[in-house]
Amino acid sequence: MNAFIRRGDFWSGLTLVALGAYIVKEAWSWEYLTVDGPGPGFFPLWYGGAMIGLSLLLVAGAVLKSDSAAPQKHVNWSELRRVLTCWAAFVACIALLNVLGFVVSFALMTWFIIAVLFRKSQRLAIGLAVGGALGFYALFSLALGVALPAGFLF
Protein backbone atom coordinates (compact mmCIF):
# COMPACT_ATOMS: atom_id res chain seq x y z
CA MET A 1 0.00 0.00 0.00
CA ASN A 2 1.31 3.49 -0.83
CA ALA A 3 2.49 5.43 2.19
CA PHE A 4 0.21 8.37 1.50
CA ILE A 5 -2.89 6.15 1.80
CA ARG A 6 -2.07 5.83 5.49
CA ARG A 7 -1.81 9.58 6.00
CA GLY A 8 -4.59 11.48 7.75
CA ASP A 9 -3.84 14.51 5.57
CA PHE A 10 -4.63 12.51 2.44
CA TRP A 11 -8.05 11.34 3.62
CA SER A 12 -9.04 14.55 5.38
CA GLY A 13 -7.95 16.46 2.27
CA LEU A 14 -10.14 14.28 0.06
CA THR A 15 -13.09 14.75 2.43
CA LEU A 16 -12.64 18.52 2.25
CA VAL A 17 -12.37 18.42 -1.56
CA ALA A 18 -15.76 16.67 -1.55
CA LEU A 19 -17.19 19.25 0.89
CA GLY A 20 -15.85 22.11 -1.23
CA ALA A 21 -17.35 20.55 -4.37
CA TYR A 22 -20.70 20.23 -2.61
CA ILE A 23 -20.56 23.88 -1.48
CA VAL A 24 -19.74 25.08 -5.02
CA LYS A 25 -22.47 22.89 -6.53
CA GLU A 26 -25.07 24.28 -4.13
CA ALA A 27 -23.87 27.88 -4.49
CA TRP A 28 -24.04 27.54 -8.26
CA SER A 29 -27.81 27.05 -8.02
CA TRP A 30 -28.26 30.33 -6.11
CA GLU A 31 -28.04 33.83 -7.55
CA TYR A 32 -24.46 35.11 -7.75
CA LEU A 33 -25.34 38.77 -8.38
CA THR A 34 -28.72 40.47 -7.98
CA VAL A 35 -29.85 43.98 -8.93
CA ASP A 36 -29.13 45.01 -5.31
CA GLY A 37 -25.64 43.55 -5.30
CA PRO A 38 -24.16 40.15 -4.42
CA GLY A 39 -26.64 37.30 -4.11
CA PRO A 40 -26.77 34.30 -1.72
CA GLY A 41 -24.39 32.31 -3.94
CA PHE A 42 -21.64 34.94 -3.99
CA PHE A 43 -19.86 34.24 -0.71
CA PRO A 44 -20.21 30.40 -0.67
CA LEU A 45 -18.93 30.17 -4.24
CA TRP A 46 -15.72 31.93 -3.30
CA TYR A 47 -14.99 30.09 -0.06
CA GLY A 48 -16.10 26.76 -1.59
CA GLY A 49 -13.62 27.30 -4.43
CA ALA A 50 -10.90 28.21 -1.96
CA MET A 51 -11.69 25.06 0.02
CA ILE A 52 -11.26 22.87 -3.07
CA GLY A 53 -7.95 24.54 -3.96
CA LEU A 54 -6.48 24.31 -0.45
CA SER A 55 -7.61 20.74 0.16
CA LEU A 56 -6.14 19.66 -3.19
CA LEU A 57 -2.91 21.26 -1.99
CA LEU A 58 -3.12 19.20 1.20
CA VAL A 59 -3.75 15.98 -0.75
CA ALA A 60 -0.87 16.78 -3.11
CA GLY A 61 1.38 17.45 -0.13
CA ALA A 62 0.46 14.08 1.42
CA VAL A 63 1.19 12.28 -1.87
CA LEU A 64 4.48 14.08 -2.50
CA LYS A 65 5.68 13.49 1.06
CA SER A 66 4.85 9.79 0.90
CA ASP A 67 8.45 8.82 1.36
CA SER A 68 8.51 5.22 2.58
CA ALA A 69 11.64 5.98 4.62
CA ALA A 70 9.83 8.67 6.58
CA PRO A 71 8.56 7.56 9.99
CA GLN A 72 4.85 6.71 9.79
CA LYS A 73 2.46 7.30 12.66
CA HIS A 74 0.17 4.29 12.80
CA VAL A 75 -3.37 4.36 14.12
CA ASN A 76 -3.59 2.91 17.61
CA TRP A 77 -6.75 0.84 17.22
CA SER A 78 -7.22 0.05 20.91
CA GLU A 79 -7.07 3.75 21.76
CA LEU A 80 -9.47 4.58 18.97
CA ARG A 81 -11.86 1.82 20.06
CA ARG A 82 -11.92 3.28 23.57
CA VAL A 83 -12.64 6.78 22.21
CA LEU A 84 -15.38 5.52 19.89
CA THR A 85 -16.95 3.51 22.71
CA CYS A 86 -17.09 6.62 24.88
CA TRP A 87 -18.60 8.60 22.01
CA ALA A 88 -21.16 5.83 21.40
CA ALA A 89 -22.09 5.92 25.10
CA PHE A 90 -22.64 9.67 24.80
CA VAL A 91 -24.79 9.22 21.67
CA ALA A 92 -26.79 6.44 23.37
CA CYS A 93 -27.34 8.72 26.37
CA ILE A 94 -28.74 11.42 24.04
CA ALA A 95 -30.96 8.86 22.27
CA LEU A 96 -32.33 7.65 25.61
CA LEU A 97 -33.08 11.11 27.01
CA ASN A 98 -36.62 11.24 25.62
CA VAL A 99 -37.39 7.74 26.90
CA LEU A 100 -35.66 7.54 30.26
CA GLY A 101 -35.12 11.21 31.04
CA PHE A 102 -31.87 12.97 31.95
CA VAL A 103 -31.32 11.52 35.40
CA VAL A 104 -31.51 7.84 34.39
CA SER A 105 -29.74 8.27 31.02
CA PHE A 106 -26.90 10.25 32.57
CA ALA A 107 -26.53 7.74 35.41
CA LEU A 108 -26.32 4.88 32.88
CA MET A 109 -23.68 6.72 30.82
CA THR A 110 -21.64 7.53 33.93
CA TRP A 111 -21.83 3.91 35.13
CA PHE A 112 -20.72 2.69 31.68
CA ILE A 113 -17.73 5.04 31.50
CA ILE A 114 -16.52 4.24 35.02
CA ALA A 115 -17.26 0.49 35.14
CA VAL A 116 -16.60 -0.52 31.53
CA LEU A 117 -14.12 1.98 30.11
CA PHE A 118 -12.10 2.66 33.28
CA ARG A 119 -12.71 -0.85 34.76
CA LYS A 120 -13.45 0.44 38.25
CA SER A 121 -15.44 -1.51 40.86
CA GLN A 122 -19.22 -1.77 40.48
CA ARG A 123 -19.70 -0.19 43.89
CA LEU A 124 -17.73 2.88 42.91
CA ALA A 125 -19.34 3.09 39.46
CA ILE A 126 -22.90 2.80 40.77
CA GLY A 127 -22.20 5.20 43.64
CA LEU A 128 -20.75 7.89 41.37
CA ALA A 129 -23.42 7.35 38.70
CA VAL A 130 -26.32 7.72 41.13
CA GLY A 131 -24.64 10.51 43.10
CA GLY A 132 -23.72 12.44 39.96
CA ALA A 133 -27.16 12.14 38.40
CA LEU A 134 -28.91 13.22 41.59
CA GLY A 135 -26.39 16.04 42.03
CA PHE A 136 -27.18 17.36 38.53
CA TYR A 137 -30.91 17.09 39.25
CA ALA A 138 -30.58 18.92 42.57
CA LEU A 139 -28.36 21.68 41.19
CA PHE A 140 -29.97 22.39 37.84
CA SER A 141 -33.57 21.28 38.17
CA LEU A 142 -34.29 22.12 41.80
CA ALA A 143 -31.87 24.94 42.63
CA LEU A 144 -31.51 26.75 39.28
CA GLY A 145 -34.88 25.86 37.73
CA VAL A 146 -33.29 24.60 34.49
CA ALA A 147 -35.56 22.21 32.59
CA LEU A 148 -33.75 18.89 32.09
CA PRO A 149 -34.95 16.40 29.45
CA ALA A 150 -37.77 14.33 30.95
CA GLY A 151 -38.74 10.76 29.95
CA PHE A 152 -41.36 8.23 30.96
CA LEU A 153 -39.52 7.38 34.15
CA PHE A 154 -38.16 10.63 35.59
Binding site: L97, I114, A129, F136
Partner: peptide, 26 residues
Protein backbone atom coordinates in the same frame (compact mmCIF):
# COMPACT_ATOMS: atom_id res chain seq x y z
CA UNK B 1 -10.39 11.29 35.25
CA UNK B 2 -13.18 8.70 35.50
CA UNK B 3 -15.09 11.00 37.85
CA UNK B 4 -14.44 14.19 35.90
CA UNK B 5 -15.26 13.18 32.32
CA UNK B 6 -18.90 12.13 32.91
CA UNK B 7 -19.40 15.46 34.72
CA UNK B 8 -18.09 17.40 31.69
CA UNK B 9 -20.32 15.38 29.33
CA UNK B 10 -23.31 16.02 31.63
CA UNK B 11 -22.55 19.76 31.76
CA UNK B 12 -22.37 19.83 27.96
CA UNK B 13 -25.77 18.11 27.67
CA UNK B 14 -27.40 20.45 30.18
CA UNK B 15 -25.76 23.50 28.58
CA UNK B 16 -27.09 22.79 25.08
CA UNK B 17 -30.50 21.51 26.20
CA UNK B 18 -31.16 24.43 28.54
CA UNK B 19 -30.50 26.84 25.67
CA UNK B 20 -32.87 25.30 23.13
CA UNK B 21 -34.73 22.24 24.56
CA UNK B 22 -33.93 20.62 21.22
CA UNK B 23 -32.96 16.97 20.83
CA UNK B 24 -31.78 17.77 17.29
CA UNK B 25 -29.17 20.13 18.72
CA UNK B 26 -28.00 17.46 21.15
Amino acid sequence: AYAMYPLILGMALVGVYSDSSSMFKL
